[in-house]
Simulated assay, not measured.
Amino acid sequence: MDSLTKKARPDRSLIKQPEKKVKAAECAREARKQAALLAPGTLRDALLVKVKQYEAEVAEASERH
Rank of each mutant, 00 (worst) to 15 (best):
residue 54 Y to V: 10
residue 3 S to T: 00
residue 30 E to G: 08
residue 21 K to F: 06
residue 53 Q to I: 12
residue 7 K to G: 07
residue 62 S to V: 14
residue 18 P to F: 05
residue 11 D to H: 01
residue 10 P to D: 04
residue 45 D to A: 15
residue 13 S to C: 03
residue 12 R to C: 01
residue 6 K to V: 06
residue 38 L to R: 12
residue 37 L to H: 11
residue 1 M to T: 05
residue 36 A to F: 04
residue 7 K to V: 02
residue 10 P to N: 05
residue 50 K to I: 08
residue 47 L to C: 01
residue 8 A to G: 03
residue 47 L to T: 10
residue 19 E to P: 00
residue 34 Q to S: 14
residue 16 K to M: 08
residue 5 T to A: 13
residue 9 R to I: 03
residue 16 K to Q: 09
residue 3 S to N: 03
residue 24 A to N: 07
residue 32 R to H: 02
residue 27 C to I: 11
residue 17 Q to C: 10
residue 59 A to F: 03
residue 51 V to A: 04
residue 64 R to V: 15
residue 14 L to G: 14
residue 39 A to V: 07
residue 9 R to A: 05
residue 22 V to M: 13
residue 26 E to V: 06
residue 18 P to G: 04
residue 64 R to A: 15
residue 51 V to S: 07
residue 33 K to H: 12
residue 23 K to P: 02
residue 36 A to E: 15
residue 24 A to K: 06
residue 37 L to S: 12
residue 26 E to A: 12
residue 20 K to W: 04
residue 8 A to F: 00
residue 57 E to R: 09
residue 15 I to C: 02
residue 40 P to K: 11
residue 62 S to F: 08
residue 1 M to N: 06
residue 60 E to K: 11
residue 2 D to E: 07
residue 4 L to V: 02
residue 37 L to F: 12
residue 43 L to C: 07
residue 47 L to H: 01
residue 28 A to S: 13
residue 26 E to Q: 13
residue 47 L to R: 06
residue 47 L to N: 02
residue 56 A to V: 12
residue 13 S to Y: 05
residue 61 A to S: 11
residue 34 Q to T: 14
residue 14 L to K: 15
residue 32 R to P: 05
residue 4 L to T: 02
residue 56 A to I: 05
residue 40 P to M: 02
residue 15 I to S: 02
residue 43 L to P: 03
residue 3 S to K: 05
residue 18 P to W: 03
residue 41 G to F: 07
residue 52 K to W: 08
residue 33 K to S: 13
residue 63 E to F: 09
residue 48 L to I: 01
residue 23 K to E: 08
